[in-house]
Design a binder for these strands. Structure first.
Length: 279
DNA sequence: CCTGCTACCTGATGGC
DNA sequence: TGCCATCAGGTAGCAG
């Protein structure tokens, strides 16, 4: 559930399911998801603890325990699954025919929370506190948080000479924007992805801020209707293509000016944009 | 410090 | 149909 809106929708769906529950045990089924932390280390820190809350910053999700945290990062394809019992989970998980790859399972009083990722990119780590997690500590201002203001964005832009597209993907500056919503935000702001961050006028910076906020908010609404269904391993976010204006539209007409949408590579990732109306 | 490149995995898709 | 190349919503780590 890659970018901020998807992870936020997951967080909201997860809260009523796990908040206040106790973690009876942890099963690490694929150690690649937790390496270099080992299963016994994880079990020792987590088992028996209560989940006080579910938190999110950028694309990171974490379970706040009585003491310590469990961070979850879904990378490209990771997802959460919910099973009524360990028995039910092992009936479908990690069998050749089923296509359900649970890497880590948390056994709670009311069911099993599985972290699943067939590609094994996603990661689950345990820390004694939020401050002890370097990845969380390195995140910049959270997009959609009250701190993410136009002037805050403007200050960050001025300090960077990177192309706008790469600037937006840098989680240490603004946390939560990924490859889809960076292209979308630049299209809405009518800004060319090659423009240097520090070349923007203050009016352009405000335009970009407004575009980011509206793109993420709209995507979140979409991600909540319908909300994630952890009981269905084949479930995925629906209908996002309806709200996307440029992403994955190479060769199609720009919805603003009719010019052909281009796809180019920046920093090894695809950028979609309209060369005619994004200046 | 900053930037650019590679690696990490697996599965789906498209061109020939 | 088969095969190979390319692509995928992300980030850590490393070299320069």
């Amino acid at each position: 559930m890659p970018e901020l809106p998807e992870v936020e929708a997951v967080a909201r769906t997860l809260r009523p399911l796990v908040e206040g529950r106790r973690i009876r045990s942890v099963h690490v089924l694929h150690t690649i998801a937790t390496r270099p932390q080992n299963p016994s280390q994880i079990a020792r820190l987590v088992q028996g603890q209560q989940i006080k809350s579910v938190e999110r910053k950028g694309k990171y999700l974490w379970l706040q325990l009585t003491q310590g945290i469990v961070t979850l990062h879904f990378k490209l394809d990771g997802q959460l699954l919910w099973f009524p019992s360990a028995k039910k989970m092992f009936e479908v998980a990690n069998r050749k025919d089923a296509g359900v790859h649970v890497d880590v399972a948390f056994e709670l009083e009311n069911g099993i929370l599985g972290f699943a990722d067939g590609r094994h990119f996603g990661r689950v780590y345990v820390y004694k506190s939020g401050d002890a997690c370097p990845a969380l500590a390195g995140l910049g201002v959270a997009a959609l948080s009250p701190d993410f203001t136009a002037s805050r964005l403007s200050g960050l832009l001025v300090a960077s000479r990177r192309p706008l597209k790469e600037f937006l993907l840098d989680q240490s500056r603004v946390a939560g924007i990924g490859n889809i919503y960076s292209s979308e935000s630049l299209w809405h702001a009518r800004l060319n992805p090659f423009r240097r961050a520090n070349s923007l006028s203050s009016a352009e910076a405000r335009r970009l801020h407004k575009a980011i906020v509206s793109v993420l908010a709209r995507a979140l609404e979409c991600c909540l209707h319908p909300p994630p269904d952890f009981r269905d391993a084949s479930w995925w976010f629906q209908g996002l293509e309806k709200i996307l204006r440029v992403y994955d539209r190479r060769g199609k007409p720009c919805r603003r000016c009719g010019n052909e949408i281009e796809r180019i590579a920046q920093g090894g990732r695809s950028t979609y944009f309209c060369a005619h109306c994004q200046k």
